[in-house]
Design a protein around this nucleic acid. Structure first.
Lengths: 221, 221
DNA sequence: GCGGAAATTATTCAACCGTATAATAACGCC
DNA sequence: GGCGTTATTATACGGTTGAATAATTTCCGC
């Protein structure tokens, strides 16, 4: 009975592979079916190896969650341009793939359902989400100031809550039923709605900012 | 070892108890930890009894999901009043307990993460969500007409998407971090934002519709 | 420098224990 | 006695473990 030949991975690489396989498996099969064995097979190794890199399966899952949140935050961090452009990019970024797709929703929902019962995941969750709305609030403040409409702390907070809510909600709709919307439709709705909320135009002259016509049905999922 | 004395429940009642216990257990412990035993204990019976009422655990979970969606839909169905009142009630209903609390989010996320991998759940999901935005679109159309601002199909659809997105998003924020908001704050933000989106007042004169001041920090979870 | 032995350690493998679901036997009330 | 409920058992599967082994690096005599 011969033993399998294997490849010995360079420092850190296998660890990253396992984290990626964890996320892929959860997205594809759900948290319940994401067993150590299933994850290991997807990563091309055997189950026992997991405990060589992580103290436990739970720790590996926790690190996978942290990695996911970090990846999201990193995407939003390197937005450049003037305040109006930055706000517009932020919204677009969060309402198009890869942030807005069923893969992301699947992952997100799996973790959210565990956050309430797992203190370690809850801590990671808190860390990950802590800056999100603050970032948005900063973008809004900068934008209002640049447009000569400086606003107080309370007003900015209120706007950030409303706009954050709208982004989250449209993200949800896009993930749940992306095939019901044109590619840019959700982004256009978000931008024009936010214009109405703030009373200021956001769209640049050189790019379409109107809502494309579409006479489809109106179901959510 | 004496056998426990037991109570013989009337037909149907025990079944309903088990469904309720299923939802409670999923919300409290997560889908993974919602074992037949845990659910049975919560319902005050022993595990074997489940198989007397349901063909399998999966079927019980599926029926619990159907029950949850039905309950949500039923709440929104019996709203009475003039168009403006109905729209306002619809929004309020979806942004206050029991629809908007961490219990609901927990349930919702648990099921959503399974919907993609379980065809039976997917069918139930589709049935349950099919009419939601159409209902909202109808409310919006009626409201606009009643205010003398009749709108075409495309406009109504666009408004319904935007407002549905905002409701979903604020619902999400309320569930995730309800303790960061005043009781009526999210509702007030939603109502004033929707006023801005539609360009029409929604709030009645006799009820506060302004956003209450609150100088707290701005974190999401 | 260089070839190969020795040490290191990443990986596999098989088995363990706990627990889950499903099936079935035992029991009590009407 | 029949039916509803419970206790018990069977089987399967999940995470974890530790010993065996293959791949890689280090070391040493030359």
């Amino acid at each position: 009975m011969n033993r399998r030949t294997f490849h010995r991975a360079p420092e850190g690489e296998r660890r990253q592979e396992l984290i990626r396989a964890t996320l892929d498996t959860i997205a594809a099969l759900g948290l319940k079916a994401a067993t150590v064995r299933a994850i290991a097979i997807r990563a091309g190794v055997t189950a026992g190896l997991v405990r060589h890199y992580f103290a436990s399966k739970d720790q590996m899952v926790a690190e996978a969650y942290r990695f996911m949140l970090t990846t999201f935050a990193a995407k939003a961090a390197d937005i450049a341009g003037d305040p109006r452009m930055r706000l517009r990019k932020f919204i677009t970024l969060n309402l198009t793939a890869p942030v807005a797709d069923s893969h992301s929703l699947s992952l997100w929902a799996s973790f959210i359902s565990q956050v309430r019962v797992d203190p370690e995941l809850a801590a990671i969750h808190r860390d990950g989400y802590l800056g999100f709305r603050n970032d948005l609030q900063g973008l809004i403040r900068d934008f209002l100031e640049a447009e000569g409409r400086p606003a107080g702390e309370a007003d900015c907070r209120r706007h950030a809550i409303a706009i954050n809510g709208m982004i989250d909600g449209l993200w949800l709709e896009g993930c749940l039923a992306g095939e019901l919307f044109e590619e840019a439709e959700l982004v256009a709705i978000a931008l024009s709605s936010i214009e109405a909320l703030l009373g200021l135009p956001i769209g640049p002259d050189d790019e379409a900012n109107t809502v494309p016509e579409r006479a489809g049905d109106a179901t959510t999922a």
